[in-house]
Design a protein around this nucleic acid. Structure first.
Length: 591
DNA sequence: ATCGCGTGCTTCCTGACGTC
DNA sequence: GACGTCAGGAAGCACGCGAT
């Protein structure tokens, strides 16, 4: 049995922050076999057989070839509130005439069992002959959500067209996927757009879903083991995705309501790409669009926020940019205003872009400006950042305290669990979904969710977004340093450790910086996908030398370091070890 | 008023992708 | 295989911007 999806309380735009990580919501969990030493690790395909319940009970498969068997099996599902749902039919069913060949197989799944109703084998000529009453009841009940991809326009439309059923409770998984994936960060993307089941399974359940030729095999004959596996898998995946994504939804801030059943507002034909409709918390309205919901939430959050939205203008950096504009104007023999308007320089100073991509985000800066003046602007900004950071490290040894508040910080604070759009350095746990931890001894082992390159060996990839790096153990450490903890108004920021700064001669510093940059190049060569920009900038190298990290925590708080850290992990090159080798821990310093 | 630029919009086309 | 959707690129055009 699963929880009732509707019974999670009336969501409000001002829902409080969910600090506690959501737990895997089911008693049946992924149970991968332990890897032995030296064994090549590779992700297995998603398979219902990989899940185990209490006392290691496997998922049962119930297969019916007659209406009577179907009735007995269907009755076992009548008390469920959510069922994975799928149907199969011969790919050339439009050429066939028998009703059994219009809908050959109906699959439903709950947490502990999967039913395969092989309609093609049922004798009879009418819908009443073929479909057991309890199965029809399940299909037509609005209180039993049937979850699947394209369930309305593919599966349910067939049941309407050929069986004259009135199916209800079609829960389109793509809708929930879009909701938890984009949420408040990009509400315009929270639409009814369909997303492949295989994509969703890999994304949320962490394992690839096999889709071979069996999909278009003949479902009208007795099923082969491959067909049974395929049919059972699709339905079970459709079921598993719901509680998984629903847990992510409940972890969002604000908590959006569940999407409405698809048939309540969408046609049975291929749905247009429109804004997702959600259950409304307002008793007067039955529904609210996702865009409206997040707009209300944002407005409410901004009303509470009394601080000005624009950060103060960093006048020193602005003056530097003005000087730089003069020089550029001289070089290009154009008036300064052609290089950039004052407002553009102000935005540059406020937003402090660090690469060409972020330069392009600045209003008034396009490809041509980036090409002509981008390098100069980036250099001015980087120089200013380095000067500031070094000064700050000398003052308090905490480079993180320098993070400039961004214009859209509020929007990011109400971002989603897995977040589309730009990732915020304020909320690493939200980007990766790694706050989703699985229970159980097997899943608690970092090494068990296999991956070809071992780069995503974190257990939570089976529930969060499978983001390769940093590893789960690194992120667990990070969790203890959660930004929420650091911003906690009651407990206040954690006590900073005694700072260690280095006192190398300028020449030694330069040598060490060069070593770090060269290390970055080695890592780049090993990467399969080469980054467009150097993994480690001179500024970052300077910061490493200025305050050498001795733990991964210290390493990860260095501004701009994370792409480098990820690439090192991916290529199995130990950055921390290298730094320690070049810059040994001074005596008496605590790691 | 002028200039050069960025931006946004529309239209058309193509190919990829989605379902079974 | 059939059918439909959608994203992205290219091209052209209009408009707004800000310093002089």
């Amino acid at each position: 049995m699963t929880e009732n999806p509707i019974e999670d309380g009336a969501p409000t735009p001002n829902a409080t922050t969910n600090e506690a990580p959501p737990e895997w919501p089911l008693s049946y969990q992924l149970n991968l076999p332990k890897q032995t030493a030296g064994q090549t690790s590779r992700k297995p395909w998603f398979h219902h057989g990989l899940y185990r319940g209490p006392q290691k009970r496997p998922v049962k498969i119930l297969y019916s070839q007659t209406k009577e068997q179907s009735e007995a099996i269907a009755r076992q599902f009548l008390e469920e509130t959510v069922l994975g749902f799928d149907m199969e039919w011969p790919w050339d069913s439009h050429k066939r005439t028998r009703l059994q060949e219009k809908v050959a197989l109906i699959q439903i799944a709950c947490e502990n069992k999967i039913a395969l109703f092989h309609i093609a084998m049922h004798p009879g000529k009418t819908a009443g002959d073929l479909i057991a009453p309890s199965l029809r009841k399940i299909i037509e009940s609005p209180d039993i959500l049937k979850t699947g991809v394209a369930i309305l326009n593919a599966d349910f439309s067939r049941l309407v067209k050929f069986f004259s059923f009135k199916p209800r409770g079609a829960f389109e998984l793509s809708h929930l996927h879009n909701l938890v994936e984009y949420g408040a960060a990009q509400p315009q993307l929270v639409t009814t757009k369909l997303v492949k089941l295989a994509h969703q399974v890999e994304h949320h359940l962490g394992l690839p879903l096999f889709k071979g030729q069996v999909r278009i095999s003949d479902w009208s004959k007795p099923l082969s083991p491959q067909q049974i596996n395929y049919g059972a898998n699709d339905a079970y995946a459709s079921f598993m995705l719901f509680p998984c994504m629903n847990a992510k939804r409940k972890a969002m801030d604000p908590v959006p309501p569940l999407p409405l059943a698809a048939e309540t507002y969408l046609p049975y034909t291929m749905p247009p790409n429109k804004s997702l409709h959600l259950h409304s918390a307002n008793a007067e309205d039955a529904m609210i669009t996702a865009e409206e919901f997040f707009k209300e939430a944002l407005d409410a959050a901004e009303e509470e926020d009394v601080e000005p939205t624009d950060p103060p203008l960093p006048t020193h950096l602005f003056q530097r940019l003005v000087q730089s504009r003069k020089i550029l104007a001289g070089l290009h023999k154009v008036p300064p205003y052609v290089i950039a308007a004052n407002s553009v320089l102000e935005d540059l100073a406020r937003q402090r872009p660090t690469n060409e991509a972020s330069l392009l985000q600045v209003k008034g800066v396009g490809k041509q400006k980036v090409q002509k003046y981008g390098a100069e602007w980036l250099a001015v900004i980087a120089k200013e950042e380095t000067t500031n950071t070094l000064q700050q490290i000398q003052l308090d040894g905490n480079p993180q305290s320098l993070t400039t508040p961004r214009r859209d910080s509020k929007r990011r604070m109400i971002a989603t669990t897995t977040g589309g759009g730009e990732q915020s350095s304020f909320s690493p746990q939200l980007q990766t979904g790694l706050l989703f931890e699985l229970e159980g001894e097997v899943l608690a082992d970092d090494k068990l969710v296999a991956n070809e390159d071992n780069s995503s060996s974190d257990c939570s990839s089976a529930f969060g977004t499978p983001v390769p790096l940093p590893t789960a153990s690194q992120l667990k450490r990070k969790r203890h340093r959660s930004p929420l903890r650091e911003l906690d108004p009651i407990r206040g920021p954690p006590q900073s450790k005694p700072t260690r700064t280095t006192s190398f001669s300028p020449k030694s510093q330069r040598t060490l910086q060069n070593k770090i940059v060269a290390f970055g190049r080695q890592v780049t060569w090993k990467l399969k996908l080469k980054p467009q920009e150097p993994l480690v900038s001179e500024e970052t190298a300077k910061l490493i030398v200025a305050k050498p990290p001795h733990t991964s925590e210290e390493l990860q708080i260095i501004p701009g370091i994370m792409p480098f850290v990820r690439a090192c992990s991916e290529t199995k090159m130990d950055l921390l070890q290298a730094v320690k080798k070049w810059i040994p821990t001074p005596p008496g310093a605590s790691a």
